Amino acid sequence: MKKTTLIFVAIVACLVSIASAKSGVATFYTKYVPSACYGDKPQGNMVAAASDVLWNNGAVCGKKYTIKCTGARNAVPFPCTGKSVTVKIVDHCPAGCASTIDLSKEAFTHIADPVAGIINIDYKKAKDHDHDL
């Protein structure tokens, strides 16, 4: 009985984790400084720019998100590496941004083939111990 209960609790926990992720789109950029959040102060290369969907007048600056590629949006049929990446929001993707999150090229390359240029993603706010979705 205890083993069955433990398995059930584990399954529910996994489903809640998956359900908390939101779907979106990611692209990448290559110039990280200056940024809307930190000006000329570099923040490393595992960074991202938030679109208006997340920006909230800059309230998202410094927040971390875990991103996982979920599939193609163009002619590159299997762009995903199967990995996830955690990035820090350092910038604002300008109006007309083609993505939910504009990743640094290094972060994008970690989760997808950069030849794809644009991918479908799942994303969620990261916790200190989060590494995967």
Rank of each mutant, 00 (worst) to 15 (best):
F8R: 12
T4I: 14
C93W: 01
A10C: 14
K64P: 03
K31G: 01
H131L: 14
P79H: 00
A19D: 12
C69N: 04
G62E: 06
H110R: 11
K64M: 12
A95F: 10
D102W: 00
A21K: 10
T100V: 11
A10D: 06
A10S: 14
A72H: 09
A19P: 01
P94K: 10
A21Q: 15
A10P: 01
V76D: 03
A95H: 15
K63R: 11
S23Q: 11
S51N: 13
A21L: 13
P77A: 14
D40Q: 10
L133R: 04
F108L: 03
P114W: 02
V87I: 11
K3H: 11
K2V: 11
T5M: 14
V76F: 05
T27D: 02
D128R: 10
K68D: 00
T30E: 15
G82P: 05
A126G: 08
H131I: 15
A21F: 09
A49P: 01
N57L: 04
K83C: 03
G71R: 07
I89M: 13
Y65H: 07
C61R: 05
D122G: 05
T30D: 10
V53E: 14
Y32F: 11
T70F: 04
T5E: 14
Y65M: 10
V25P: 01
L15D: 05
N120H: 15
I89V: 14
I121E: 00
Y32Q: 10
L6H: 09
T81P: 01
A48G: 09
T5G: 07
A36Y: 02
S99C: 11
S20I: 13
G58F: 01
I118R: 11
G44P: 00
L15G: 15
V16S: 12
I11K: 08
K63N: 12
W55C: 11
A36I: 03
V87N: 04
S99D: 03
A49C: 06
I111C: 04
T4F: 11
T81M: 07
H129A: 15
M1R: 12
A26L: 05
I67P: 00
G44I: 08
P94W: 02
V25C: 05
M1D: 11
A95W: 10
T109Y: 02
K88E: 12
G62N: 05
K127Y: 15
A75I: 09
V33A: 10
L103V: 06
A50P: 02
A59Q: 10
I119T: 04
G117F: 04
K105A: 08
Y38G: 02
K41H: 11
T27I: 03
G117H: 03
D113G: 02
D91V: 08
